[in-house]
């Protein structure tokens, strides 16, 4: 991979980081991100640029650094190296602003178990100045008839769709969706995909962490392939297949990462 050299690497400490003008048009810029947990390198020199309205898939085996990468982009984790801009903002230092425009669906985040779908939507709606109307959102994620159901009584797929709904409630301009359809049955998976296609039509920028080739192939403009914390490829789904000389994205994944793609849990 070609290494970007205009990052913060050689800059004297203490000077404010200046984002090059070329980055101003991109929705998300991550430059030379690095993160270690103890002695383990989780993310090693990952640079990404996501254009406005683009859907970028992040693909990789377990432990490839996908979640750590998106959590650094979301400002949940502090990068050891490199920097992030979301709509030109630093997600840690300008946290409050970024929270207005960035919608996040976290992996394995539960919600108040005894509250109903409608109550949870009301709660999250109260955090934003111009939330999507509850009715529209429920229809969007197909939970209209579950609105009076408590979170604990929802199926896994319904919980997942509610989680996505809450990530989109504040009309984000950028959405990060981690493990979008893991654990969903094929029908629920298709419902979620239809939602993402509607986001694509609304020109929302989306970063999608995924295990599923079919999902990435169908939804994403480009795919970032992570392996052992490093970005090994960044291309369109068709480009990846061509580059690997493979017949499909599954084979391209194996060829480019040396690993079997995982089945969704």
């Amino acid at each position: 991979m070609e290494r970007l050299t205009s990052g913060t690497g050689g800059r004297p400490a203490g000077l404010p980081t200046v984002v090059p003008m070329e980055d101003e048009s991109a929705a998300v810029v991550a430059r030379n991100l690095g993160k270690r947990y103890g002695g383990t390198v989780a993310v090693d020199d990952v640079s990404l640029r996501v254009e406005t309205g683009e859907i970028l898939g992040i693909l990789g085996a377990n432990g490839a650094g996908k979640t750590t990468t998106v959590e650094m982009i979301a400002g949940l984790r502090r990068p050891d190296r490199g920097h992030v801009r979301v709509l030109g903002l630093d997600p840690r230092r300008e946290r409050a602003k970024v929270r207005q425009v960035l919608g996040i669906q976290l992996q394995q985040a539960s919600l108040h178990h005894a509250l109903t779908v409608r109550e949870l939507i009301e709660m999250f709606a109260a955090f934003y100045p111009d939330p999507r109307p509850a009715g529209e959102l429920l229809e969007f994620v197909g939970l209209t008839s579950q609105r009076a159901t408590r979170f604990e009584k929802l199926s896994g797929g319904q919980q997942q769709r509610l989680s996505i709904a809450l990530a989109l409630i504040g009309r984000p301009r950028v959405a990060i969706l981690d493990e979008l359809t893991t654990g969903l049955d094929p029908r629920a998976r298709r419902q979620v995909w239809a939602m993402i296609e509607r986001l694509r039509d609304e020109e929302v920028t989306v970063i999608l962490v995924s295990h599923a080739m079919e999902e990435v192939e169908r939804l994403c403009h480009r795919v970032a392939l992570l392996d052992g914390g490093r970005l090994t490829a960044l291309d369109t789904p068709a480009g990846l297949v061509a580059r690997a000389g493979a017949g499909n994205l599954d084979e391209a994944f194996v060829a480019l990462s040396g690993k079997e793609p995982e089945e969704p849990a």
Binding site: K97, R99, E122, P129
Partner: peptide
Amino acid sequence: MSSAIVARSPGPCAWLTLIRCE
């Protein structure tokens, strides 16, 4: 692009909603 983004803290309505939910 970022100049249009204003950081708004949740107001009294958010507090009341949260207290009701709790």
